[in-house]
Design a protein around this nucleic acid. Structure first.
Lengths: 352, 352
DNA sequence: TTGTACGCGTTATCAG
DNA sequence: CTGATAACGCGTACAA
């Protein structure tokens, strides 16, 4: 049964809601040239006579022609947009200043090129399916992955797919060729620990992060290096989970096992904030009884009591650099080898 | 020579950098069916014999075929993605909890449909060109505009382009048919003012927002209505610019012109926070000497001194609803007429 | 139920 | 410099 399709001799264009966009064919016809010439005039503009170009430009203006980006993408195999992927574990997206900084940085990098920034919020459970598929099926020309949290096995899938990808933060479980930008976590942690040593502390513990996250691994290594270099015993280590609550728990255990500590390097401001709460509960004064040193400086360090001395990460600059590297990767420009590391800044407040 | 039958078994695909993605043609060949049948089997699955479908599915699996979304878009004239546009005036993007809530809400709405959320950060100066073009040239199927700040003349361009659009916050200068979700600002402001009246205040002023923003207009109207209904003189009005500094300035002027005020309804928590600073400077106690009532409850109201009594906007719910309306607009489902308003919640803290 | 053939709007190739 | 014409990969009337 054929639907309401009635044979009509007069070609009536199907009533579409959106106004019919003029095609390059109409431009070419109006300008009196071929589609190919019209296309050339509209794009590069090379190899076209001034006369033809003028005619095409006039036609474009009069018709209000705008190239269809989908058709263009199909022909060029490029979409002109890049993704910033934010794998967010909990429901509270973007309240984390880390992400705000990353977005700002990427936006800055993309602003000068003619790329469009597409932000992908990837809830962790769906990350393996929808987002991954979106990225690997030609929707974007490349992606920056803000792998703030626990590294995903999907990272590997992504780089192996051949899509140009740059990570913010060294990814684990990925071919060493994978590009990334990162804070020099080890060196920064070493600086922080050395600062504590310089201040006269000798029994220095650390609340490290999860053992399967690169930032945690590197920061622990830096603390270790500084302790070794100073001939101090590096035995007071407890792992937390990068949350405030985890920091409190870890600090409690650290104190129970090593009551003689006079300073603690905490791998994250967020964990440090939790640790401060635990210390307050126990009546331990900071920094008088125990010095605390954090890491990140993405907002929480300023508002704790006392404000945290910490190592500041230049997240926004890192994201900008990641965007630039991605751009070069896409356009085929040679990009520097890994690692691309950024120095952290020593920020002294009241806690150490 | 019909291109349909040029398929040759020895066709060697040109060596491309990215791994050659299998096309539906190869799937059809391997399954021993035509492209059309393969396409039908892959999509709806209707009108295909079980045998053919099985063959196609096997071929898809063995080849790892994934439809090229660009080609699909070109054929269907749908992209499968929607934009959330965030016009951000200053460089600090997303530190505003308004945006975080909006993003979360949209993400929730989009999660259940098969749409992809594309976040567009539109710096104001570029908003007129790149973002607008991106939206109107078929990159997305529709957009939600989080017009938190001053209304843009481009809003009109957008709705006139025919792109399905839903605004968060009533837009000005736009055909009345434009869909939007909004807080019932007038009613909420009236409730706030009535609360002040109930508490015994009689000389109630207001720090209103910019006269060209709908939220400001509506809230001022609500304050007016409450004052009129109570037979109180509604003459103490000063306009601020929706910033903390503007709130301080406006409060100063209000106090100078009307020293007898015993309560002030401030159209925004942010302005109220500035106002509180001005009051502290003058040694005016809140709420004892002067009661202050705010609007928004998007984070700042809890941290002021004293914490602000305010009208809470359900931004996240609004964004979710906006996303749902957009989805219906795109799929042709009937959507409810304007206005789609959400009630604000009266939140009592210490300032009034 | 299946297959043919055309359309989607551009860009790229390759003779003139 | 220009113009046919072939990709690009897929969806889908229409006919069989």
């Amino acid at each position: 049964m054929s639907s309401e399709k009635t044979a009509s001799a007069v070609e009536v264009p199907p009533a579409r809601v959106r106004q019919a966009a003029p095609t390059i064919r109409q431009v070419a016809a109006l300008a009196g040239v071929s589609r190919a010439t019209a296309s050339r005039a509209i794009n590069g503009g090379h190899l076209v006579s001034d006369q033809a170009r003028a005619a095409v430009e006039a036609a474009v203006a009069s018709l209000g022609f705008v190239p269809n980006p989908v058709a263009r993408s199909l022909a060029t195999r490029r979409t002109g947009s890049v993704a910033l992927v934010i794998p967010e574990p909990n429901t509270r997206v973007l309240t984390d200043p880390f992400f705000a900084s990353a977005i700002n940085g990427m936006a800055r990098a993309v602003e000068e090129s003619d790329l469009q920034l597409v932000l992908l919020i990837a809830r962790r459970d769906g990350w393996s399916t929808r987002t991954s598929r979106y990225l690997t099926t030609g929707h974007v020309d490349g992606a920056v992955i803000a792998s703030h949290h626990r590294d995903d096995t999907l990272n590997r899938t992504l780089v192996e797919s051949g899509l140009p990808v740059v990570f913010i933060g060294r990814p684990l479980d990925v071919p060493p060729s994978a590009r990334y930008v990162d804070t020099d976590n080890a060196h920064a942690a070493q600086l922080a620990t050395e600062h504590l040593i310089t201040r006269g502390h000798r029994r220095i513990g650390t609340v490290a992060g999860p053992a399967d996250m690169s930032a945690a691994i590197d920061r622990l290594a830096g603390w270790n290096a500084a302790m070794d270099a100073a001939g101090l015993r590096a035995d007071a280590v407890v792992h937390g989970d990068f949350t405030a609550a985890g920091g409190a728990t870890a600090m409690a255990r650290l104190l129970d096992e090593h009551p003689d500590l006079d300073a603690v390097f905490v791998a994250t401001d967020l964990m440090a904030s939790g640790a401060l709460g635990e210390l307050a509960t126990r009546g331990i004064r900071v920094p008088d009884d125990l010095a605390i040193f954090g890491f990140d400086d993405l907002g929480v360090a300023e508002t704790t009591d006392p404000p945290l001395s910490t190592m500041g990460q230049p997240i926004e600059d890192m994201a900008t650099r990641a965007g630039e590297i991605l751009r070069d990767l896409i356009t085929g420009v040679d990009v520097p080898e890994n690692p691309v590391t950024f120095p952290a800044r020593l920020i002294l407040r009241d806690s150490a």
